[in-house]
């Protein structure tokens, strides 16, 4: 499930230290290295994707995000990015907390489960949604912690995480005016820029 990087690059300062959790084949890190001259590091599990990153000249460490980020120091990065991975994490709450310990800011994107398409599939037809953003059947899916804009903001509140920006896009990274006006119903992808007072 890849989503266009959308507005993310705008939120990264020049020369920032960036950690990308679940960096995949390193598209975003490579883009940020070119456009923002970042010092980037990716974490990824799949060796084939790691090889692709290495060919691109990126630095990638194989690490399971479910084991947390305890091997990183506090405030080691300016920004920690995690795109479309939060819903596959065993404990999204503890990882979010850890992300904002290691990074000054975090950018998180995830599929909005309250999107109207999902509501119709579940609410009217009575089936767990299966669509381009959530392509797996319920019994075999990495997406074990689906949430909504509203759910996520409630969690941020509970963890005392401050939301700097909220954005929404469709799968190809474009914004729709409906999604902007009413994200919880019409936003396909939730995009958040977060920070936390230490």
């Amino acid at each position: 499930m890849s989503v266009d990087t959308g507005r993310i690059p705008e939120w990264i300062p020049q020369g920032a230290r960036v950690l990308d959790l679940g960096c995949g084949e390193g598209h975003l890190l490579a883009e940020l290295q070119t456009t923002r001259a970042i010092q980037g590091l990716g974490l990824e599990l799949d060796p084939e994707k790691i090889a692709t990153c290495l060919r691109r000249g990126l630095n990638v460490v194989q690490q399971d995000l479910n084991q947390g980020l305890s091997n990183f120091k506090a405030n080691q990065f300016d920004t920690i990015i995690m795109t479309q991975t939060l819903q596959a994490i065993r404990r999204p709450d503890t990882l979010l907390d850890d992300m904002l310990r290691v990074g000054r800011e975090a950018i998180v994107t995830f599929p909005n489960f309250a999107h109207v398409k999902n509501r119709i599939q579940l609410g009217i037809f009575g089936h767990m949604p299966v669509n381009p953003q959530l392509p797996n059947p319920w019994y075999d899916t990495p997406n074990i912690h689906l949430s909504t804009f509203d759910d996520f903001e409630a969690l941020c509140d509970q963890l005392k995480i401050q939301i700097l920006n909220r954005d929404t896009s469709n799968l190809s990274g474009q914004r729709s005016w409906l999604g902007t006006v009413w994200p919880n119903l019409f936003g396909e992808v939730a995009v958040y820029r977060l920070t936390k007072e230490h």
Binding site: Q39, L41, L58, N71, Q76
Partner: peptide, 9 residues
């Protein structure tokens, strides 16, 4: 990583 050196693993 702690020394902020470029590493892949």
């Amino acid at each position: 990583i702690h020394a902020e050196r470029p590493v892949s693993y």
